[in-house]
Simulated scan of single mutants.
Amino acid sequence: MRYPKTKDLQEIWDRAEAHLKKGLPFVLYRKPDEKEIFGVFQSNSALHHSKDFTEKGFIFAPFDSENNVILIQPDEVWEGTVRAENLQATPAISLDESGKEAHIDLVRSGIKEIEKGRLQKVVLSRKIEVPISKSPIKIFKTLLNTYPTAFGYLFHHPKVGTWCGATPETLMKVKDKKLLTMSLAATLPYVANEKPNWGSKEIEEQQMVSEYIGDKLAHTMERLEIDDAESVKAGNLWHLRSEVRGNMLPNLKVSEVIRALHPTPAVCGIPTDEAARFIQANENYQRTFYTGFLGELNLKGQGELSLFVNLRCMQLDNDKAFVFVGGGITEASDPESEWVETQNKSKTMLGIL
């Protein structure tokens, strides 16, 4: 195994800056609630893919294709410690109402499809374009400071693009054949000193996700435990989350577990195939890596993975950023409220910019 080299934080920023200038692939990331930042640097601009999740490196996978999982080769792995910096207060964000009618129409179509009995839930999203003047490294530093409990990352590949995010959702962690994942659904805005007041729509939505994950994993595990739902804060939002733990069957391949879990009902819907078809036909843009997954692949040892769902993320393109937001639609959804939910979610990334 190639142990990470310990580096001063400034050296890590400088190396990432140099890779950006030279057009070389790299990723910087920090795991939830941790102080360590890791840099995985590839020494040439070749585009590598993971075929079966047995390779070593950092993977970046799109929403809808298992054959197109990008792999950054770990030619060098660096590690440093992030120091929390004092943040200036985030200025009030003025939200743009353009796109409202289109999104409400999309949600209405989703509800109609659910009423026909083809779907129980579908996750519908939109893309927001905003001008930027900050560099990717600066955006990433702000993001790390603002969301210490999320998986924060900055990914760059000259043939793929530059992405940055702070996701609250684990896809899966595996070590010694022990699996840890989560069922995450439902959203309410965070209000200081107030506990979230969940309605039946949110509770049912989260329960639906837990049951679906249980069904999907049942045949792959020797033992499976799903905890009760609890409220968790992610940035300026509340979610409902249940921890899921299991022991993988001895001959099970990691790729089979990934296939069972991705895309999760939290980013696609139930049943997954039907929901994915509806999304492709109706969303009017390509998600590419939004709602895909990313993370460490066998870097610390064969069969050890730490993968996260690519939520609360943006694509950076010179002087523009594309921010992605969505929400879970069920029969009980109200189109106007769903628009407000995406507006609330957009503040997570817009506040960073």
Score class of each variant (00 low, 15 high):
1 M>L: 14
117 G>W: 09
218 A>L: 05
318 N>Y: 09
317 D>M: 10
322 F>M: 11
350 L>Y: 08
268 C>H: 02
95 L>R: 13
126 R>S: 11
260 A>M: 04
173 K>G: 02
239 H>T: 11
219 H>T: 13
211 E>I: 12
320 K>W: 10
62 P>Y: 08
225 E>R: 13
168 P>V: 07
128 I>V: 10
104 I>G: 04
323 V>W: 01
127 K>C: 13
200 S>C: 02
210 S>A: 13
160 V>D: 06
49 H>D: 00
349 M>H: 08
231 S>P: 12
348 T>H: 06
276 A>L: 15
146 T>Q: 15
52 D>H: 11
106 L>F: 10
3 Y>S: 11
258 I>C: 06
336 E>Y: 09
339 W>C: 12
169 E>V: 13
255 S>P: 00
334 D>C: 15
348 T>W: 09
193 N>H: 15
167 T>V: 03
44 N>A: 03
289 F>L: 03
166 A>E: 02
345 K>Y: 00
323 V>T: 00
118 R>G: 10
217 L>G: 04
39 G>K: 01
20 L>F: 09
83 R>Q: 15
211 E>H: 06
325 V>W: 05
164 C>T: 09
130 V>E: 13
14 D>M: 10
143 L>Y: 08
257 V>S: 05
144 L>M: 12
277 R>Y: 03
291 T>I: 06
113 E>G: 07
152 G>H: 07
169 E>K: 12
164 C>V: 09
42 Q>L: 04
278 F>A: 01
205 E>Y: 08
82 V>P: 00
155 F>Y: 12
126 R>Q: 14
206 Q>Y: 01
271 P>F: 01
15 R>K: 15
273 D>A: 15
265 P>Q: 09
29 Y>H: 07
266 A>Y: 14
60 F>H: 12
225 E>H: 11
41 F>R: 08
90 T>K: 14
220 T>N: 05
269 G>K: 00
154 L>V: 04
152 G>T: 13
21 K>W: 02
158 P>S: 02
274 E>L: 06
71 L>W: 01
127 K>M: 15
190 Y>D: 06
213 I>G: 00
288 T>H: 07
